[in-house]
Nucleic acid binder design. Sequence first.
DNA 1: TCTCAATTTAGAATTATTCTAAAAGTGATT
DNA 2: AATCACTTTTAGAATAATTCTAAATTGAGA
Lengths: 133, 133
Amino acid sequence: MKHDIADIKNLLNRHDIRPTQIRKAIAGLLFDGLDKHVTVDDVIEMARGRQIKTSVASVYNTLNQFAASGLLRRVSVEQGRAFFDTNLSAHHHFYFEDEERLEDIPVDAINIQGLPKLPKGRRIKSVDVTIRI
Amino acid sequence: MKHDIADIKNLLNRHDIRPTQIRKAIAGLLFDGLDKHVTVDDVIEMARGRQIKTSVASVYNTLNQFAASGLLRRVSVEQGRAFFDTNLSAHHHFYFEDEERLEDIPVDAINIQGLPKLPKGRRIKSVDVTIRI
DNA sequence: TCTCAATTTAGAATTATTCTAAAAGTGATT
DNA sequence: AATCACTTTTAGAATAATTCTAAATTGAGA
Ligand SMILES: [Mn+2]
Ligand SMILES: [Mn+2]
Ligand SMILES: [Zn+2]
Ligand SMILES: [Zn+2]
């Protein structure tokens, strides 16, 4: 639980993100120690709920910056909306299709024994296992 | 290679899809025996290239119908566009991020040893492994 | 406090997709 | 072949997620 403002500022500084108002506010919503999978709309609603005044464009800007800086992981599990994942450690996902919701699967709950040889000149950026249920 | 028109009509009939003009035309483009991952735009371009006159809406309709009938598998690997996969057998994917392109990985090239226990009342719809490279 | 680049914002623009409703096609029946 | 009921196709409008633009605001350092 990194709840205090000092920790949030520190987190942003460590990632070379200037700790501005809405960045601190959104970081405070997201990085409370609990793993989350949020959409842009989720964040807008969370911000409204806590009287944080911001704009749609700023939420997009901020989530995209956080993802680019490695504070969030973007998860593409369906064509429409993007999910942003606060859990940065290696893990996999259940996707509840009817609820349009992700849930983490610990990395050691799935044992991948062998990986295929890669095309020439390529390196693995990620190995994502999605179990649709 | 199921190239002749009789086979295409047969395929559509077996899946309870009326073999109309554009359905036969699009099926002819897609089901030539080679595995493909196509976007709607790909199909529109392919159709243009073979002088098949159709509309954007019809390509969407047809690909969605084919996917609903089990003739195609929809693959969601990034937020923007959907891919439609003509390979219906169990397999996984390399995703070439810079080229925005999918490539099949044979199912037995990845050995998944254990799966986590499912949430109550849920059944697995699919297990998708995507290796981003 | 002043300055100026970075940030935030409202609204326009873009992109993928779906919807609407009218025209065209299909298959069965006379 | 003509009719009929229904399905499909289509152009264009509508929707939804996201990005862009350009102007206003902020804030870190001088
Ligand atoms: Mn939501
Ligand atoms: Mn393409
Ligand atoms: Zn996760
Ligand atoms: Zn495939």
